[in-house]
Write a protein that binds this DNA or RNA. Structure first.
Lengths: 339, 339
DNA sequence: CTGAAAGCGCTTACAG
DNA sequence: CTGAAAGCGCTTACAG
């Protein structure tokens, strides 16, 4: 089961390796029809397939990119991966998927391995723990793109939601429906993960704009497994919020689990908006008002820019590309003005 | 920004390339402490990183595997990918993820690209359209594993749910609750996709075992966008089923969308069990009785066997590894015996 | 204990 | 229009 190489093809076709290589790379400019034919049939007869590893070594590119997601269990990550995969497929690129699990150590290991494997570029949801590593990559002009998150002080093209706008959309809707005590819950705020921080900031700003009071007890970032307890505590405040913004799909899920287990009713007992348009939003009871982010678009544009960078080898100034959230009104927000 | 190679390290450390290579591969048997130190500091000073492409070319292995999923939007696929990724990470393997979109042409392209890139092995959810290609890989003893699906006549290790058992679990539960007219809906049956076919077969067998009549109109495979209409037709049969088994998460979703839009009530108007324990099953109204498959386990064991195969280079007889489904009783099945 | 040499399978100027 | 040669960055017997 010896592997067939370009040498075997050359021998069978009665030409040199160089000529076969020309053929493989479609440099037909000066190739006779006859030669072409002979090579073609030799390839077929031997079942020859180019060894991309050898080609990559020589050409110094692998047509492979790496994607490091923070947490593959997030629905958003899956959609991003899918979108990236789609555009890479069109350009005959492959994607190596890595799941950093929000662990900077894992992220670091992946970055190093990916670079050792000579991937042509990387798209990352940075954990925030490897600034130096990324800094080095930027220095050497390595094709790098961030998705969903920014890192302070790093000039990297980044694709993400306009998170503040997302919170504002929610607060505005709550306000229009007559809510005055509004809460927000996100996942843990350590390491200043961009969407969480920005969503809380946007939330505060929106409150101001609507002349609503801000209460520290109404805006919290909890570790994943403390969300339910934290939410319970907020509900039992002296003057609890009548409306909550769930910072992402996982938070939303925890809130829904809690309300289910306690027999609390949405939107009678409290109103709810979730950021991320979860799959079951419109079949839930009640249908959930959500704020959708264009995950597919984000992934697509990130991949397209990365490939463009790889191919052009130049790097214009890094920009932050923001995407507009969309409020999808369903029935999880109670209209306090009607009662 | 010249890349630093083993030659640079050798020069700086004042040794030969061979010795550096020995060092990199941890063959310290005959290496003096002094040499070791010098190489180590040279590596640090230059910021040297092994080029895996070059190593791969020489060693003829890439420590990379390919995963071709049929449809990445299925939750099951994501979980499988995650599990594979986890075990690969432990073994310092990387995974290239490909989404065949249930399209044999795309699948073929991916297989060829993956092999051209010299991945050490492949885990696939085969579409069923590339038997010859797979056959060839088996002939040459290429490390290959199937997940979720089998291909007639191919001797490949496969990891999948005991699909018949899954249907039987559902039918048995329906029967215990007094249902006599039971229906099943799966996605399209063209190309004989294993889980769909087996779930319908298991369904029929279970009906027999419970002495329940089988009605062709009660067991259907629909194209995705015809599920809602198809379901509607089944509901409006002269003597419609009182209970339905949804063949997978996507079917379940369509049924739920339909019932929502028509204001039909579960389990009052019909009872429902879904195969795949969807994320929202226990927070849905009513909580959905489901049949869970151990996706994580399936992916884990598949990856472990693949890596074992890659490392050992021998291939014991291919087996089909079945996993037990689990019935999770919640509230979407009405007890007809109590009324 | 360490080095020189060959080779993995390609591509790419360059020569003719 | 085609071929000989060098080289991509490693590893691996083998020699000493």
């Amino acid at each position: 089961m010896k592997n067939v190489t370009i040498t075997d093809v050359a021998k069978l076709a009665g030409v040199s390796k160089s000529t076969v290589s020309q053929y493989l790379n479609k440099r037909f400019d000066y190739m006779s029809e006859d030669t072409k034919q002979r090579i073609e049939s030799a390839i077929k007869e031997l079942g020859y397939q180019t060894n991309f590893i050898a080609r990559s070594l020589k050409q110094k590119r692998t047509s492979t990119i790496g994607v490091i997601v923070a947490n593959i269990l997030h629905n958003f990550s899956t959609q991003i991966i899918r979108a990236i995969e789609d555009v890479c497929n069109e350009h005959d690129f492959h994607v190596i998927v890595c799941n950093a699990d929000d662990d900077p150590e894992k992220e670091k290991k992946y970055i190093n391995m990916l670079r050792a494997k000579q991937v042509d570029g990387i798209i990352a949801f940075p954990t925030g723990g490897n600034t130096d590593l990324y800094e080095g990559m930027i220095q050497e002009n390595y094709p790098l793109i961030f998705v969903d998150r920014l890192i302070d002080g790093l000039q990297v093209d980044a694709f993400l939601l306009d998170n503040k706008a997302a919170s504002k959309l929610a607060v505005q809707h709550f306000a229009q429906m007559g809510h005055k005590h509004i809460g927000i819950i996100t996942t843990s705020l350590i390491r200043n993960v961009t969407p969480r921080v920005e969503r809380i900031e946007g939330f505060k700003e929106a409150l101001l704009e609507h002349s609503l009071p801000f209460n520290n007890e109404y805006a919290k970032g909890f570790n994943f497994n403390e969300i339910q307890n934290g939410f319970a505590r907020m509900l039992s405040l002296a003057n609890p919020p009548t409306a909550f913004l769930a910072g992402n799909d996982l938070v939303l899920m925890e809130i829904l689990k809690f309300t289910k287990s306690k027999g609390i009713k949405i939107p009678d007992d409290f109103s709810l908006i979730g950021i991320d348009d979860v799959s079951f939003a419109n079949i839930y009871h009640p249908p959930l008002t959500t704020i959708a982010q264009p995950a597919f678009e984000i992934g697509k544009e990130a991949a397209e820019l990365l490939i463009k960078k790889i191919k052009s080898k130049k790097s214009p100034v890094a920009k932050t590309h923001r995407f507009e959230p969309k409020l999808i009104i369903r029935d999880s927000v109670k209209n306090l003005k009607k009662t």
